[in-house]
Simulated scan of single mutants.
Amino acid sequence: MLMVTIALLPASAFGVYNFGIQALLMLIVTTVTAVVVEAIYEKAMKKPVTVKDFSAVVTGLLLGLNMPPTAPLWMGALGSIFAIIIVKQLFGGLGQNFMNPALGARCFLVISFTGPMTRFVYDGVTGPTPLGQLKAGEVVDTMEMLKGTIPGTIGETSVIAIIIGAVFLILMGVIDLRIPGTYIVTVAVFVGIFGHFANPDIAFFDPTYITAHLCGGGLMLGAWFMATDYVTSPITKKGQYLYGILMGVLTGLFRLFGGSAEGVSYAIIISNLVVPLIERVTLPKPFGKGGE
């Protein structure tokens, strides 16, 4: 968890650079609230206080990175309370939660406060995210999406900053390529094939269209930092590939044929719920009971 926190620092720093002091305050509020609420709850329930394991820090920081920079600070605090109490602690704490706490809280906030959670401002101008523009049939600048100088949530905009953190996690042995690689490739293939059916003006496997989908909508942040969550992802190798494919297909369906231009959060959460079934069908048989 400490390694994940360190790996999130480049995306956090760029988010603050991109969106200013409001982004910094949001990251502080969500992170501090998550840590304090976890400590208070565990103290009240007479459980060992586990805030030193950095799991609450990761939850709060990830939630902050998934918040629009213009959202009220109290909303970020409410999201952290929901993530820690409802999604994590009421199900037994770390290792027992059935979905990613930060994403669960983000979806709760989007459903409850749709307006503030889908309002994006960049450089003083309110407008849709690049994926929103793409869904409306407009042209987007993929180079700006790659650099991150676009409207969006605090941590999702800069692919470069996210990749720096992801490479750090890979080198430290915290994650591998199975889940994020399968997820990203599946999205690319799905968008390449079905993008034409969603918009006849888009050619099959249009490179610009695919690049825009890979760089936008929090796909990279979700693939590298939330889909790889140890608690809510499969432990079997075959299961991890299947998990990545499922998330990729769901993300493509939500983006191309759903009402929203995003879809990553709901794709990961739905896949989290299917993980027990995935592990059941992919668990190897032990030696002596049919296993080789």
Rank of each mutant, 00 (worst) to 15 (best):
R178T: 13
G222C: 03
F225D: 08
A136D: 12
M143E: 09
G216A: 12
M172W: 11
P234S: 03
E138D: 07
T211R: 05
M117G: 14
D229T: 10
K135D: 05
I193F: 12
P128L: 13
G124W: 13
F168T: 11
S233Q: 04
Y122C: 07
G148C: 02
V121W: 11
L214V: 05
T153N: 08
D176V: 01
M220K: 07
D201S: 13
R178D: 08
V185L: 13
T211G: 06
G222F: 01
S112V: 06
F108C: 12
E144V: 09
V121F: 10
D141S: 15
V185M: 14
V231W: 10
V139I: 14
D201W: 09
I160M: 12
T153Y: 07
L131T: 08
M117I: 14
T126S: 10
L131G: 10
A188D: 03
L169D: 13
E156I: 02
T157S: 04
F205R: 09
Y209L: 15
F168R: 14
V167E: 03
D206T: 02
F190N: 03
G152N: 02
C215T: 13
T232K: 04
L214D: 07
K147W: 10
V140M: 00
G124V: 15
L221D: 10
D176M: 05
P116H: 06
T232G: 00
D141T: 11
A203N: 12
L131C: 10
I193D: 12
D229C: 12
